[in-house]
Structure formats: structure tokens, C-alpha cells
Design a protein around this nucleic acid. Structure first.
Lengths: 205, 205, 205, 205
DNA sequence: GATGAATGAGATTTCATTCAT
DNA sequence: TATGAATGAAATCTCATTCAT
């Protein structure tokens, strides 16, 4: 019970922080705003988090854990390199589309801030990227993906593309292109781009 | 003479700000640090810039102007969609490699901050991205690039990939992959990914 | 208890501000001085007041409320136009004499500042002046005061006279004339000056 | 020629300062504003005045010299205590009416500031007030004014009344009462108020 | 004399964090 | 645990004044 109450408050703070950070940016957000929105006292926040930075990091890690688990589960249900990759793209963009505020914080704030947060390793983010490289490696084993594609580079290329599309979508007022259309194009370009030309011929023949 | 001195000071401040912002991030940078590094009095900065935000924006616009001009000139000397695109990628990554501090500020700080700078339109950034879409459109006219590739989406996909690779390179201590290698892979994936399959077959045949 | 502490601090700040403003003038007074004298932290002041201007206005309104109530009560106990007016004069000068610092602030600082305090209506001051006009109107009803005396003008004439005498007394080092003597002369001049000549004749006859 | 130019600049600065001080108050006025309005460089002001305070004091003394001379001359042409006094009131209010900006500065700024200007004696102001006491003393010699009226007090009473009326007129948007009407009432009250009652009877008889 | 760019001291205000209750 | 009043360090920006030209 105590514990439940505890978690409840922690979660309320994280949720409020997500909203506030998304709206004002990390540096322009005030602890008191978060406290107010979470319906706790300012001081209470310091019972759950070491300091302001810690809220951002915790928020990120909490959400990343959920996301990584979720994405991994879904991808496990797909078979074949291409299907898995398209599923990853779909899931990523869905997450952005469904939780815009979280997306903003993760995209904008964390990128800016993590350089300055001592002791933060960014492992979770690495874990997320490695979902992509694992798929690519599998593709190479399947003989689908060219051997000269370095998975450690390719994972960043795909993530960067997704991230930029997401940023634009999050920040722009008039959403010119849907996330779905963008996702399709990303998938087309990336998959065609990494495919083994031999297989390509075969599949085209 | 007066004018030269004037420009000199303005430039010194921009240069110092680049260094300081890169090192500490915009919000953790102090005007006094910049002034000290630029060897001017704190107050002098306000003769050249409206406020702290204005330094960041000016820095960005100044550099963007130079970069855009430079990149456009170089691309103009190349012929054909593929050459132009590879040149763009090469130039972008060279800029990152040659001026790491500037790159850090442009990549990290501006992305975070521009949301909060009222009245800043970000035209320069748009201009830069449009160099890419112009090349893609040319590729479509040449019959090289598939018609279902939306240039407005593709430009962000390529930029996102370059940007992420650059961010990683800028932030990581041990630079595992060279920018050159990464650039080659980006080019390979992106170009193969957008090529018209018919041409592809022909070129493969 | 909480509340008492609260009021205590607010009052301590007001009191300290009165002293500091009186000594240095509003613009030459520093928040830190006031805080130090009030034995609170600089930031604490901003829990009770919006800004520096607000301290001055609050100080004025707080004191005016007390003064107006006090003066009105005392005047209510007097009967007849002349007695009431002499009592007003006596009370006004007593207030100056008893609380020189408050007087200085109210006389000098507020007069200078209120032009620049947007949104400050100065109602309290008006209320105070209207105590005088009320007495004059009563005098006119009693047939004592000439009908051609415009109460709205006369109230300022009397207040101006009192104010100048007070300013002089507050600012001059060697107080040549006592407030009492000055008060008597003001009363003599003003009352004789507004009396109905007919009554005057009668009373002289 | 040099000298004429010199005076011209000095005067332009004084004139500009009057305008700027009147509009913004002394402490909210910037040297650069005054310089701009006077069409001189900021630094030029320091060739004519020691510092910002000195501008205010000089402005005051310059104008006071003119005013005192002017008022004295006009009064000298009147005969008898009552005429002289009414002329003084008329002149004072005319000055306010004719040069509102100067009036504002003299009334509001100087009053506030002179406490804080080291070494400023305020002699000119004293000279001005003594015009009044001289008239009153003459009135006492003529047997018109009661002996128990202390001229040093009475001069402040009259000045205070005039000053308050003027302040109100200068600051209020809708000028409810004309300066002329107010002047008549001040004269009526003050003169009747100081007159010897014996003379009063005689003059009434 | 005249200029105006440069100076740099200094004050208000904010806000993360603490701690007595 | 929870509170929220109090703290006080710290930073942006202003502007009177100076001084090299």
C-alpha cells in the first residue's frame, strides 16, 4: 500500500515532468510547475529524485525500458529481415504519433542535455539502437543484406532518418506528410539501399 | 578601419561563443565567459547582439550563409544526380570533421533552442535542406530516381542520417568509424534506395 | 501561527523598506539592504512583494489605510466645521512628527514615483484628501464657509500647505519653527480665509 | 562665435533634458536619450556638465534665475501687499501653465532628488520663496497683515498650496478646474486668512 | 572641442534545493 | 513521508562615464 502510493506519486511526477519539459524545454521548466501539475509539494519531488537532471534521466530510462520491451516483443513475432525492419519503423513512428509529448522530450531535450549530465551513460539508448543492428546482422546472415554494410553505422543511418522525420513532424504546425507515408518511404529507401544486388535481381526477375 | 575593428569584434564574439556553447551548452554558458574569451567587456557584447539568444541565432545564420554558399558552389561543379548527391554528403561530413565545435553547437544547441526563440523562422536551415531536394528532383527528371520518392520527405531522411552520424561522431570519445566510411555507406544506401529499379536492372545487366 | 509568522515577515520588510527608502530614496535603495535590515534573505522579499515598486506601493497603501482610519475616527469625535478642521491639521502634523521616516517616504518618494507605476490608481491618497473636502462641505452646509470656495480645490490648498510645511520640517536640519506653531498658523489662515464674511462680521461685532 | 556655439549646445542639452526628465523622470531618463534629442554625442554632454545630477541642478538653477528675475520685475510694478501677492500667484500659475514640462521637472524630480545631490544647497529655491515672505513683511508694515503670521511659515503655506494645485494640474488628465479659478481661490483664502481683522472690519465697513 | 565605442560595476530577480514542522 | 516557506547564489543586462581618435 505504502509502496503503491509511492509508485503512484513517482509516476505522477514523471508524467507531469514529461508534459512540462515538452512544453517549455528542460531549462525553461520549473520544479514548481512540475510539482503543481503532479499535485505534490515542491519538496516531495526531492524524495523521489535526486535533482532536476535526475527527473529527465529517470523519465528517459523508464520510458525506454517500456519501449524497448514493447518493440522487441513485436519484432520477435515477425519473421525475416525485411518484415522485422518494417515493423521496427512502424513501431517507432507509432510511438511518436501516439505520445507526442514524450517524443518531444526524448528527441529534443535529452539530446541536448545528456552531454551535461555527469554519470549518465546512455545505455538505454544504445540498447534501442541495437535492436536495429541485430536485425541488419540477421539480414546479412540470411544473405539479404550486403556484407559491406556496417551494422553499427547502418543502425544510426536508419535511426537518424526516423528521428529527423519525427522531429519535423513533432515541431511543424502543418503536418504536410503523414507519418505513415514517411515511414513507407524510409522503409523503401533503406531496405532497397541495403539489399544485396544479386538477390535484388533474383527478386526482380 | 572603424568598420574593420567593428567586424573584428563581432567575429571574435561569435567565435568565442561557438567555443563556449560547444563546451558547456547554451544554457550553461555564461555571457562573462564569452566576453572573457573574446577579450571584450561583458557590456560590449550587447552592442553587437540583442541578448544571449541573439548570439546563438546570429552564430547559426552567419555560419549557415557561408556553408550554403560553399556547398552550392561545389555541387554546381558536379554533373548528374549521383555525383551531386555524393558531393553533398562529402561536404556535409567534411564540415563536421573540420570544425567540431561549430558542429556541436549547430547540431545540439540549436535544435534544442530554436523551439523557444520566438520570431526565429529557421529559413537558413530550410535553405540548406532544399539543396538536397533540388538534387533529388533533378534525379527524378533524369529518370534516375523513382517517382514515388517525395523529395520533401527524402531530404529529411538523408539529412537525418547525416546528422545522426555526425552527432555520434561529435559526441563519442572513441571514433569507431571514420566519417569517410560512414559517408560512403550513407551514399550507397540512400542512392541505391531511391534509384529507379528499371535503371537498376539495366545498370546491373 | 503560520499566519502570524507570515505577517510578521511582511511587516518587517515594510518597516525595513520605510527606513531604507527614507534614508536613500527609492532609486538609491537596494533590495539587499532592505532584506538585511529585515533579517530575511533577498529572495524572501519576492514571496511577499511582486517587485521593488510593489514594496513602495504596498507600504503606502498599508500606512494610508491605518492613517485614514485613525484620522476619520478622531474627526468624528469633534463637532463643527472649525474643530474638525483644526483636528485634521493637528493629526496630520502629528503623524509627520511622530514617524519621520514614514513621512519622508510618503512625501518624497511616492510623489516622485507614482507617475511611473502603471496601474496604480492612487485611490488611497484620494480618500485622504476627501476627508478635507467632506469637512469643507459640512462647513458650507453650516453656513460657515463661503459658497464660492470649491471643495475640490480647497482640499488641495490645505493639503499642499500642510505637505510643504511637513516636507520642510522633514528635510531641514535645524527645525526653526515647531510643527505646532506652523499648524496653528495654517489653521488660522485657512479657516479665516474660507469663512463667510457675514459670519465674520457678526463674530467680530 | 565659439562661445555662441558653446551656449547653443549647452542650452540644447538643458532643453532636451527638461523634456526627457519630464517624460520619464530623472532616474528613468538615459543620458543617451538626452544626447540624441539634443543632437550631440553622449560624450559631449560631459563637456558641459559634470554628471547626470549636474544636468538636473543646472537646469533648475538656470530656469530659476530666469523665473525669479521675471517674477520680481513684475511684482515691482504692482503696489500694495494684496496686488503684489495676487500677481505672484498669477505669475506662478502662468509659468506652470505655459511650460508644463519644466514644471513637471521642477515639481517632481527636483523635490525627490535634491536630498541626494551632495553639495546642492537649494539657494535658488529659497530665493524664490523669499519673494513671498518679502511681500508678507511689507503687508505687515502696511498694517494689513496680522503680526502673528510668521512670514517664514506663511511663505511655505502659500507655496505649498500653489505647488499642490500645480502638481495636480500637471499630472491629472482631465483638468477639472482651471488654473485661473484655482488661483483666484488660493488668493481669496490666503489673503483673507492673513488680513488683520481690524482692517477687515474697516474695509468691510 | 566633439565623438561614440567600449567599459565594467552593480542590482534585480529567479529558482533549485533545503529543512523545520 | 509530505510540505512549502525560506534561502541565497548566481547571471543577465543596463547605462553612466571615459578616452582614444
Amino acid at each position: 500500500m505504502q509502496n503503491k502510493e509511492h509508485n503512484d506519486k513517482r509516476e505522477r511526477i514523471i508524467k507531469a515532468a514529461t508534459q512540462v519539459f515538452a512544453q517549455n524545454g528542460f531549462y525553461n521548466s520549473k520544479i514548481s510547475q512540475i510539482a503543481k501539475l503532479a499535485k505534490v509539494a515542491d519538496g516531495t519531488i526531492y524524495l523521489y529524485f535526486k535533482n532536476k537532471d535526475d527527473i529527465l534521466i529517470s523519465l528517459f530510462e523508464d520510458e525506454m525500458n517500456k519501449i524497448i520491451k514493447n518493440v522487441r516483443d513485436e519484432i520477435a513475432q515477425e519473421s525475416g529481415f525485411e518484415n522485422k525492419l518494417r515493423k521496427f519503423i512502424e513501431k517507432h513512428l507509432n510511438l511518436i504519433g501516439e505520445n507526442r509529448q514524450l517524443a518531444e522530450v526524448m528527441q529534443i531535450e535529452l539530446r541536448q542535455s545528456h552531454k551535461f549530465m555527469k554519470g549518465y551513460s546512455g545505455t538505454k539508448f544504445s540498447d534501442y539502437l541495437n535492436i536495429i543492428s541485430t536485425i541488419i546482422i540477421q539480414g546479412q546472415k540470411e544473405g539479404k543484406v550486403r556484407q559491406d554494410i556496417v551494422p553499427g553505422v547502418a543502425k544510426r543511418i536508419l535511426f537518424g532518418a526516423l528521428d529527423e522525420i519525427s522531429s519535423y513532424w513533432v515541431l511543424s504546425k502543418n503536418k504536410k506528410y503523414s507519418l505513415q507515408l514517411s515511414g513507407k518511404i524510409i522503409g523503401d529507401i533503406f531496405i532497397d539501399g541495403v539489399l544485396n544486388p544479386d538477390k535484388n535481381l533474383v527478386s526482380a526477375g
